[in-house]
Simulated assay, not measured.
Amino acid sequence: MTALTEIPETPEVPGAPAPVAAAPSGRAALVLRRFLRDRSALAGAVVLLLLFVLAFAGPYLTPWSYDHIDYGALRAAPGPAHWWGTNRIGQDVFAQTVHGLQKSLIIGLLVAVLATGLASLVGACAGYFGGWTDRVLMFLVDLLLVFPSFLIIAIVSPRLRFGGWVAFVGLLAVFAWMITARVVRSMTRSLKEQPFVRAARYMGVGPFRVIWRHVLPNVASFLIIDATIQVGGAVMSETALSYFGFGVQPPDVSLGTLIADGTGAAITYPWMFFFAAGLLVVFVLAVNLVGDGLRDALDPTSKGGRR
């Protein structure tokens, strides 16, 4: 009988630390590492953070309220009393700008969340169920795409002034989800034929659970990128509509109303125009940088941080 050869045990070294199994890094950690390696995306995120801090902490940094009038300083240049000067009726430009930035950011975030959420729900249901569900939902999408959204919002928004800016958010969100829904529908139609989705169906998993657990996570990268773009687009839409008097209504202010009020004085009193316009440009650029960084970080084939 052949004797079994014993494998000698590795002697323990006194004082040596015990070996620890390496913890597997999750997808969130991988995405975060890719994002942090992208310098332009990281710069955009820092700028966005600073803008949010300015918008929500700025009103507490100045003794002036956005609607307070200083009759002794009409169109005053920037100085110690009014950091960014005053407008034509003596309102502090810094207080008005940070309040307008705050309102525009809130509107942009709410519109992005509502529009992206609605697009993901409608697109996933249309692509997964198919048949009459797909036909009805896509008919609704095509119908809304035919309507001139800017004109409809301009006509309807003055009649919803009792609802304030919340009703305005709803109007912007209603006309901002259709193209995204079509893309999600196409992605869902290809995903539902994948083996893991078919296996879930054969195991008796309900359709909405399949959509929630298997479909939406696989289109999450597109939805996140779309949401970042929606924020910038919603702020631009709000600014344009408010510029023409169809958005945020006085005495409230937004970046659009401030830009509209300061346009005529952009040459003679530039502080009334360029602070609000500059913050709008910086915000849109930062959102685009963050969106590009998220796209690279969430794309499995991307080598994040190559820029």
Rank of each mutant, 00 (worst) to 15 (best):
D70F: 09
A45L: 04
A45I: 01
D70Y: 08
L48V: 15
G79Q: 14
L51C: 01
G44Y: 11
A43V: 10
L54T: 10
L48Y: 12
L61R: 10
L50T: 02
L42Y: 11
L51N: 01
Y66L: 11
A55S: 12
P78Q: 05
L50W: 04
L49C: 10
V47F: 13
A45C: 11
L54E: 03
L42W: 09
P59Q: 04
A76D: 14
S65W: 04
I69D: 01
L74P: 08
L48F: 08
A55C: 09
R75G: 10
L51P: 00
I69P: 02
V53L: 15
P63Q: 02
G79F: 07
Y71G: 11
T62P: 13
F56L: 14
S65K: 07
F52K: 15
R75E: 05
I69L: 12
L74R: 07
P78I: 14
I69K: 06
D70T: 13
F56I: 02
I69Y: 06
F56M: 06
L49I: 05
T62N: 06
A41L: 07
Y66C: 00
V47Y: 05
L61H: 07
T62M: 12
S65Y: 08
L49F: 08
P63E: 12
A43I: 13
D70C: 13
L74G: 09
Y60N: 10
Y71A: 10
W64T: 00
V46S: 14
S65C: 10
G79E: 06
D70I: 14
P78A: 15
A45G: 03
V53D: 02
A41G: 05
P59R: 00
A57D: 02
L54S: 04
R75F: 11
V46K: 15
W64L: 02
S65Q: 09
G79A: 03
A45D: 00
D67Y: 08
F52A: 15
T62A: 15
W64N: 05
A43H: 06
D70G: 11
L49G: 09
L54R: 10
A57E: 06
P59D: 01
F52I: 06
T62L: 13
G44K: 01
G58Y: 13
I69C: 09
A77G: 07
P63L: 03
W64A: 02
A73I: 12
A43D: 15
G44L: 03
G79M: 07
L54D: 11
A77T: 14
L54G: 02
V46C: 12
A57S: 15
W64R: 04
L50P: 01
I69A: 08
D70K: 09
G72C: 13
L51Y: 02
L54K: 07
L51T: 00
P63F: 04
S65R: 14
Y71D: 07
P78G: 13
A76C: 12
A43E: 09
Y60F: 05
W64G: 00
L61G: 08
Y71M: 08
I69G: 06
L61F: 03
Y71T: 03
V53A: 12
G58V: 02
L61D: 06
A73N: 09
Y71S: 15
A73V: 15
G44C: 14
I69S: 04
L48R: 05
A43P: 15
V53S: 10
R75C: 03
P63S: 05
Y71K: 05
V47G: 10
T62C: 14
A45N: 01
L42N: 07
G72D: 10
F52L: 07
A43S: 12
G44E: 04
